[in-house]
Design a protein around this nucleic acid. Structure first.
Lengths: 207, 207
DNA sequence: GATTTTCTTGGACAGTTGTCAAGGAATTTC
DNA sequence: GAAATTCCTTGACAACTGTCCAAGAAAATC
């Protein structure tokens, strides 16, 4: 800790922080591939260009490394659909765009989301990640809600469910098709892309 | 394997199978408490009345024990809401009953469901459980669909979403409130109980 | 009650894990 | 270029893991 700051002030730039970033990246790579239960420090080091000893130079212990990695993971995770929101000009466009974006996410980043669900679950057993995971989950919820609110504007309608329920719905949907997708069902992404617009409509449906 | 069957034919009753059941029970206890990543055979043995060596007398290896346990887990998991379906005589009764049942499940069996989500996630990394997990997931989906179909009868309405989407919705809902519940939010179960009936209605809402 | 079979224990094994420290590279500082 | 500092490797450690086995306890069989 104190070492770190001394180094920063000495060498000028934050080379220390940069290495942490780099090692966290390797950690995420290993975690996404192997899952939390099977990821060891030596495995992480092997994904990087360094030996296993270096991890304790940049991180106090495994928990700090993983916590840092989880936080880093957030960046990729919580702004994913903001472009779709910004670019859509009609309700229908937003529906389709949202569905397509989720399908694309499923296709290209399946292993990273598998990791996300793994970490969220670990936080139910282990106190250490809980705060970070809950924060990421809140931001994901907010991200979904931005889509819903924009749709409300464009369709001039009122969402019939709460923020939490909207998030639960789309998250559940994604997770469900993730399971299918990773189990080898090739049509999973397409199915998700088709299901999403219908669910969006349904959330605004009034009797 | 062959040993097992010889014993059964000799001693008459299935004492062998009984012990397997008993040890699987201890395994589930340990898994629910600690999570997959932190559950060792010695930990499981400690939950039972036996020493760690006995596990390899009744199971070939750890994978077989865990697979057997996962299958056993299924029993509790896939018929949970059938009573509600059987007893409800009006659509509104079913709505409320379903919500109350999910809330009760969240209150009393949170750790077991934490385990379920953990195992389902493990199956995304490890081939060995995948088939069993997918089968349980299918049965859970069918269980939810029985609720939906019964509601359709009682309300004389048509569900506006597919079986998969209906399951994803309620499963996502439950999981979301499970996270909150285990994080210490005391109102989580009540909130879930209130959210469910509204979501049920929404699934049948036609524009 | 003796013998055979079934069951259970406890210890040993080889491998893996997180952690740490000594020493050597590499780099900066003067 | 010498000295000081920062960075990284290597090997060691104790604890833990799944697995296996010898030997004794318990039970069934005769």
């Amino acid at each position: 800790m104190t070492q770190a700051k001394e180094r920063i002030s000495r060498r000028g730039v934050d080379k220390f922080a940069q290495r942490r970033e780099q090692l966290a990246e390797s950690a995420l790579q290993a975690l996404a591939e192997l899952g939390y239960a099977r990821t060891s420090l030596r495995e992480i080091a092997q994904k990087s260009d360094f030996s296993h000893g270096v991890l304790h130079y940049y991180f106090a212990d495994k928990v700090e490394l993983l916590t840092y990695s989880v936080r880093k993971f957030e960046e990729v995770c919580v702004t994913r659909y903001d472009d779709v929101v910004a670019e859509a000009h009609t309700a229908e466009e937003l529906e389709r765009g949202f569905g397509a974006a989720m399908a694309a996410t499923l296709r290209t980043d399946a292993v990273m989301h598998r990791l996300w669900y793994d970490l969220r679950n670990q936080s139910l057993f282990e106190e250490s990640f809980r705060a970070d995971v809950l924060e990421i989950d809140d931001r994901r919820q907010a991200m979904i809600w931005r889509v819903v609110e924009r749709y409300a504007e464009l369709a001039d309608a009122v969402p019939q469910v709460s923020e939490a329920v909207a998030y639960a719905t789309f998250d559940g949907l994604f997770q469900q098709f993730l399971v299918r997708h990773l189990a080898g069902r090739e049509t999973a992404a397409d199915e998700l892309g088709e299901a999403v617009p219908r669910v969006v409509k349904q959330l605004f449906c009034t009797a």
